[in-house]
Write a protein that binds this DNA or RNA. Structure first.
Lengths: 243, 243
DNA sequence: ATTCTGCCGTGACCTGAGGTCATTCTTTAT
DNA sequence: ATAAAGAATGACCTCAGGTCACGGCAGAAT
């Protein structure tokens, strides 16, 4: 097992730069903004730090002064992109009132529209999840766990309080399953790169998409939701359908 | 949507090299073997084509003659690694007889042991799934769809025939859900890079792991399995199904 | 046996990317 | 105003992937 971890010597640059001195925050965020554009358009590897600097009209060295390395720059870009996404519970009040699975549906349906409005952060998230490096991926995973940017933990707590989610499954497990499947399902919805054949085979038919979403949610609900017996639903569950 | 795909010009090298002339197949596979070792130990980016060639005692140029690019070499390595894995239905007869979910459990438990015996292909699969490039990832996804190396499709067919899996969910959807969750669950089991906190928080306690597997399978079964009434598994379906 | 022929390996070479750093410019504090 | 600290510069370096003209060598043809 010893050889499995990547080279333990030389910690990543973006970790050594923990307190990079309080440099001009404005410039930092300008760089991040332009870099996001470049990464999104070109992909991680094809994007050039030199180009980013040129676009900004600054020296390439400056970028490295600020972020230490290309990895470090991307990590900042990634964090910014992911933080710009809405959290699950940011859904409208009436959607929240309809319950956890309606919240999920709301975002699944919306995701595609939001993609068209502003696809850049989505592309960045995709790159972070699949297209960089395992070392960076570890950092990204840490970030996702510590910040819970999509608010999955909050959503699960919400669902547990409403008695919509099963209490006999560890909350950690529910969170993980939600994160895994929602991520993959959305990736499949959004990009051809990762579609396991769910949406590509059918010719972009929107109503089939709706059907897929419906089916997916039904599966999820059986998996982690409380039993809904087809005959006369339990009164105590039904009671809190509000709030 | 137009800008989202990566640069359409210049198709990847490993695609242009489709028929690279029938060069010595023996040498090709020797290269792939050594390259697999290097990629697994160093990671995709840190692995050097020059080192691989040096280890083999051949010129770096030869490697490029054979595979066109580092990407192309890795793709071959990835395919070999993934093909070396057992398929779901390769489980022992008595396990298959016990049904789909017992087959899944069997492999979940075994995976960890197999990892210790020979971790290299697992590491390669991990790199292919998360640690290279989106362009390559697309190719990898195509490969996974066309070859179904883990035999998920066969397993689902098996489960449908045995009436263990729901017929009211598209088979495609079941396959995808199985692939997604099994992959992520195994990744979390095997590596710290991708563990969403499911296994890391607890101090490597094997019986907790067992419990997690148990819970995970229960969730899966509710999600895609036929409703199980409180009585035990149906005896009428016996295991003479060979595929 | 000798020549011919075409595949294959070679390694010197190129390109261009990430990354460094001494120096210079700019801002801020006193 | 002056000094000290921070920020920007751009020439420079390293080194990795990738190219290619050439030479050798195996097998076929004579």
């Amino acid at each position: 097992m010893s050889g499995i971890a990547s080279n333990p010597a030389a910690p990543p640059r973006y970790l050594r730069h923990v307190p990079p001195r309080p440099r001009s925050e404005a410039k930092r965020s300008r760089i991040v903004e332009v870099a996001m554009q470049h990464f999104a358009e070109q992909g991680y590897h094809a994007a050039r730090v030199g180009d980013i600097a040129a676009t900004l009209g600054i020296a390439k060295g400056s970028v490295f002064q600020h972020f230490g390395s290309k990895d470090g720059l991307f990590f900042e870009v990634y964090k910014k992109a992911v933080r710009s996404f809405p959290q699950y519970l940011d859904a409208p009040e009436e959607v929240r009132a309809a319950g956890v699975f309606e919240v999920l549906r709301y975002w699944l349906v919306r995701t595609e529209h939001m993609l068209h409005e502003d696809w850049i952060p989505y592309r960045i998230a995709l790159l972070g999840n699949y297209g960089t490096d395992l070392v960076l991926k570890r950092e990204i995973n840490r970030f996702l766990i510590s910040e819970d940017p999509y608010g999955t933990v909050a959503l699960v707590r919400f669902g547990l309080e409403r008695r919509e989610l099963r209490k006999d499954v560890d909350a950690d497990m529910i969170v993980s399953i939600l994160d895994w499947t929602m991520e993959r399902f959305q990736d499949a919805l959004l990009t051809a790169e990762l579609d396991p054949g769910l949406f590509r085979r059918q010719g972009e038919m929107p109503e089939k998409k709706e059907a897929r979403i419906q089916q997916f949610l039904a599966v999820l609900q059986r998996a982690i939701g409380v039993e809904l017996t087809s005959r006369a639903a339990r009164p105590e569950v039904r009671a809190d359908k509000r709030i």
